[in-house]
Amino acid sequence: MSQLYLLPISVFLLFNFTFIGTYIAAVLQGHVVPTVPYISDAATYSPESCVFGQLISIGCVLLGITIYVRFRQIQEIALRHADVQRVVERLNARAFWVGMGSCLGVSMVGNFQETNVRIVHYIGAFLAFGLGTVYYWMQAYVSYHLQPYIGSMVKAHIRLAIAVLCTIFFIIVSVTGIISHILFDGTDPRKWYPSDGGWEYHVASSISEWIVATAFCFYILTFTDEFRVMQLEHPPLIFIEVEGSQYYEPVINEPISTVS
């Protein structure tokens, strides 16, 4: 598989197009007020929810492949350089599973709307943003130890800065989100007005969510240059010889010749 650098670019473009496009569609149909709703609020009602779920599912597949390719890239560098292997070998494997957990959370958010299965939606949001933030801290740490073999110190600093930004705003969106829903006394949380309770907390929470989601997309985009210097070959396909299968070739014992 060549042109691996297109993976992070595709993830960046697809997720941002999904978020912004769904918001515009929801506003035009009057499903949300044109202020600052949560990303998932704009994807609560059909047809936006259907399009949102489909595009998010596609994006999660691309994101999962990107996380796997990054895992393999670090693994190969560690095999070639003992100093890298000592530091990142175990962390790389853990980061892979944390990243996949975040990817699963994004899928849950996209396919379990808040109005339908609220608890699953909230668990998905926690996995997506919580584990995603942990994954980005791990990758920022690894990036410093990959020097000078791949990447750059500037790129490592950028990843660290985004990880710090995601941590701050993840805490803000969690705290203000809980407070705003406690104080809310309106009729429809998808149409939150200043006259409803907890307006200031709602705005702070929704803006923070948009910042975290956008920062996530930009973080994935930073992998682009490092993906340009490698390609991934197709995995080999090996047939298992099972008796009765058309691929089964019985072993014929050749007679042992004797020399007299």
Rank of each mutant, 00 (worst) to 15 (best):
M100N: 00
E89P: 00
V87N: 06
V109M: 12
V109Y: 01
V51I: 15
G105W: 12
L55G: 10
I58T: 14
Y68V: 11
Y38R: 01
Q29V: 01
G110Q: 06
C60W: 06
R86A: 06
I39N: 03
G21L: 02
Q73K: 08
A95M: 11
S49N: 12
V98F: 07
A93T: 15
G53C: 10
G30I: 11
G99P: 07
I77K: 00
I20G: 02
I39Q: 02
V33T: 15
S102K: 08
V84H: 04
A42E: 05
S40D: 07
A43M: 10
D41H: 01
I77A: 00
F52C: 09
G21T: 05
G99E: 07
S102R: 10
Q54N: 14
L14I: 10
C103T: 15
L104S: 12
Q75V: 11
T44G: 05
V27W: 08
E89F: 15
G105H: 10
C60E: 13
G101S: 07
S102I: 11
T35P: 01
V61F: 14
I24A: 03
Y5C: 03
M1E: 12
V106Q: 04
V106I: 14
S2E: 14
L62N: 08
F71H: 15
I58G: 12
S102H: 10
S107L: 15
V98E: 01
R80M: 04
V11C: 11
S10D: 05
I77W: 07
C103W: 08
Y38N: 07
R80G: 15
C50T: 11
M100S: 06
P34L: 11
F19P: 01
V109D: 00
L104A: 15
